[in-house]
Amino acid sequence: MRLTPRKAVTALLAFCSLALSVALVSGCKKAAPRKEGEILIGFSSRDLSAEYTAKLSEAVVDYAKTKSGVKLVMVDAQSDVQKQFGQVENFIAQKVDAIILNPCELEASTPAVDRIKTAGIPLVLVNQVTKSAGDSYIGSNDFDAGRIAMEAVAQKLNGQGGVLMLHGIMGTSAQLQREAGAREIFAKYPGLKLVDHQTASWDRAKAMALTENWIQAHQGKFSAIFAHNDEMAMGALLALERAGLKKDVYVIGIDAIAQALTAVKEGRLDATVFQDAVGQGKGSVDAAILLAKKQPCPKETMIPFQLITRENLSQFLK
């Protein structure tokens, strides 16, 4: 059968309308009529393909299921500020009772926060602050994470030696604060030298290529790598292992993702800093429910970080 352009267009239109009707039917199933007195919470996750955020989001969804009279709808912003803004507008249009926002970015996500506040909907921010504050913030102080990680490096090196730092996406609050925390430790130990630092955008492949290049440029001049997250720490680790240099270099990340914990267990990664995804997820649901019921709720809840090494690993493995 030869497909003429007209046939092709007809086929395409038919396909699209089919897809649309399927989407509508499944959409209707989800948007079941709201029960009287039920609390509807909208949750926009920054990026479900990032392991830490996925863990946090799962905790939010699972914990909300255990609460009776609460319905939670989750959407994934895939690290796209614009997309998240649209999702927020949809929540406002649906007149949800509270919104849990895991913002994409410090500055760029601020307009979305302002829009929610203008609409008068209670807002819980989780794991990332914006320039405007929500009604409640559940997070961990990333400043502490940077400090804990660099302090571990300083202890290991006895305050003397070269360090490389892999930044997250520049301008995210986690990157800014983790760097600031680390810089404080550098100021405390004048023997620690920051040999080079560069962003690998939270990305394992980028961190690996960057570390390979650093090995060429600075071999012998550094004895530790601090990565702002575990994905990048894993990339640095792979590059060092491949070059046969891991034994000379202490590598530490932040987040305690599953693969990093396994690597610590196997004695490959030296340490990571545990950020309590489940604690943050549960805390944000609790706060959203309190706010939706117009009950008092703390402005800020901080879930503490902890250093994980081989010695205390067992208590973090499920």
């Binding site: 393909s49 990032a50 895939q78 990305d203 394992r204 492949a205 690996m208 990339g235 792979l238």
Partner: peptide, 13 residues
């Protein structure tokens, strides 16, 4: 090759 290099299949790679 990329998956082998970074020892994972990353949907956002």
């Amino acid at each position: 090759v990329l998956a082998a290099r970074i020892t994972t299949g990353q949907p956002n790679a």
